[in-house]
Design a binder for these strands. Structure first.
Lengths: 354, 354
DNA sequence: TTGTAAGCGTTATCAT
DNA sequence: ATGATAACGCTTACAA
């Protein structure tokens, strides 16, 4: 008798019973994995409607299939910070794209291992993982993922071993920018690096600090500049933003005597900040000081300038990552892919002032 | 004999056996839901290590608990578009924040119902859903979610019924901006609206088009302007971006005779575009034309101007949504919350030219 | 403190 | 074309 008054959610077996068919038949109606006569299908659909059954429970289906249809994307630091970087968005878009063939969704995860009860790699029902910017804390994430045996692709980071990674010719591209600056005749050059470690600490970079550097991207882009200007004055920003560029620019351009004639920023955002700093100080770009960046995103806030920079294929990087994940999930072998930037001369660089 | 050579993944029962304890004891060691003697705990941990067991399978745990620890955030249109809107990111950050107490992750979902095999509301293992900008297609999402019986919160959209929603005083805030413009003495005023429908179609808005309007935010902000300027000339942008603002601005400011003395843009991005358009045409802001926006985000690219606008509490909105979700998941009642904007006078508005 | 056992709701295999 | 049945791997009363 006890006809449970509190509405328990209908299951596929309720539907099957109501429709007078077996559970497996009902299941097949929803999955479409086998032929079902039109008549029974209709009965099942009707029964489902009747009972308010909205289709297989995703968690049960996940368990049974061994797939959740979810891919984690691990970003460094808080979301806001990650998305402040203008290349993140196109890249994410690319990832979704590459994953499309698989019909997988994207779960945003932060890399904070400490974060108590936050959702993390060890407890999230994901089929695979994309790691972005493998550095410090992210390395822990990699460890977890590996022991969990999840397929993983790393974007911009050294994963080691046989882990497919999507890389960029940071060093060469950076060197190309530097070469452009050198060819213009600059000798007193400074570079503004991305953060050296997870902890953003800005200021001049000396050898001691250099040895603490853990972020690959930072290292490679700096190395590229040094390939051309071995003794370049390096200044490390606390992040990649216009504000940080502004701070760095003010510091580097303040002292008239030691003022560089060209500043090579390791991101377009930083470069934009430098341009602002220059304008603040009444310096003209590029007549008084040349400025260039890295990324090739569209930066607002630099007026009519076209930034001299190198353009990275952000969407393609993301798509490649997504595609490799898709392949691995299909049991196919995945490759590491290397992308190259394209140098773009703009209006923010010129010969040094006479 | 057949000691499966292909390494099948170890399960908790393997661990239990290896450690010589019952399955439940092993389970408890990992969940910490009950006291276990230090000795047995150690044995279990050791066994797990031995077998390479990395903790309970998330899918199995999800099924058993009835919780996946994942909350879906449904955005309108492609990810890229959604994240292009500068208020989205702080809002997402707020959501993650509000969800933190729950330890839930965020699954990004698009609202495209048609999208074949893409991951969607009906098949994703989520515990709850946040709907952003409930309009048109998003309404279908709402329907699905409701029949699935998932807790849901709607941000900026009319969900009807007893669905908690996070709202903004779009109309009043917009009216306040308009009032400011009126108080400065402007009479020839134009407004640039957000898209009227999901399909971005830009251009003058007449009554016919007005009746096709489906987006709540657009409607409310426009209504606010009309509260002050009943016959305001409305021009609908194809989206909320600087480029769209530029296009709109060019069109509105082109004809010297019909040129408005003030343009009220429904977003800061649009306003930034208008300012650019004005500068292109050699018009000074605010001397020749006043411009104001909506959102209160930091816009790059408008030089030294401080945009006259109204500031919306984006992070707070997101956090509120997250918190309401958390409450519902705890079985507590959830409320609708209403947020208000704060008017901010900037340097882009002044009295009309004499 | 530890063990027993009953599901959670599916899907896939194999018969029929 | 349809049905019976065995997993999937875990959690949690409840019993010992």
């Amino acid at each position: 008798m006890a006809d449970s008054s509190a509405a328990r959610r209908a299951t596929i077996s309720d539907v099957a019973r109501e429709a007078g068919v077996s559970i497996s038949t009902a299941s097949v109606v929803f999955s479409g994995k086998a032929k079902v006569s039109e008549a029974t299908r209709a009965r099942v659909i009707a029964a489902a409607e009747e009972l308010g059954y909205t289709g297989p429970d995703p968690m049960a289906a996940s368990l049974r299939r061994g797939r959740s249809g979810i891919v984690a994307v691990v970003l460094e630091g808080p979301l806001r910070a990650a998305f402040l970087d203008p290349v993140t968005i196109p890249m994410m878009d690319g990832i979704t794209d590459g994953l499309a063939s698989l019909g997988a969704g994207v779960l945003l995860l932060r890399d904070s291992a400490e974060d108590g009860d936050a959702p993390n790699l060890t407890t999230a029902p994901v089929d695979a993982v994309v790691l972005i910017g493998c550095s410090g804390r992210t390395r822990d994430a990699l460890e977890i993922v590996r022991t969990r045996g999840l397929p993983v692709v790393v974007i911009e980071g050294d994963a080691g071993d046989g882990i497919p990674q999507i890389s960029l010719d940071n060093r060469d591209a950076s060197a190309a920018v530097a070469a452009h600056v050198r060819d213009l005749g600059h000798e007193r050059v400074a570079t503004i690096t991305l953060p050296l470690t997870g902890e953003a600490e800005r200021g001049d970079v000396d050898d001691a600090r250099l040895s603490t550097m853990t972020v690959d991207v930072t290292r490679d882009r700096l190395a590229g500049v040094r390939d051309v200007f071995p003794n370049v004055h390096a200044w490390s920003a606390g992040g990649s933003s216009i504000d940080e560029g502004l701070i760095a620019g003010r510091d580097l351009l303040a002292d008239e005597d030691r003022r560089p004639t060209a500043i090579i920023a390791q991101s377009d955002l930083l470069a934009a900040g430098v341009i602002r700093a220059a304008e603040e100080l009444g310096l003209r770009v590029p007549e008084d000081v040349s400025v260039c960046g890295f990324d090739g995103i569209r930066v607002d806030g630099i007026g009519d300038h076209v930034l001299t920079t190198t353009v990275q294929p952000a969407v393609e990087k993301g798509r490649a990552a997504g595609e490799q994940i898709a392949r691995m999930l299909r049991g196919e072998p995945a490759d590491s892919l290397h992308f190259t930037c394209r140098f773009r001369a703009g209006t923010t660089t010129a010969a040094p002032p006479a």
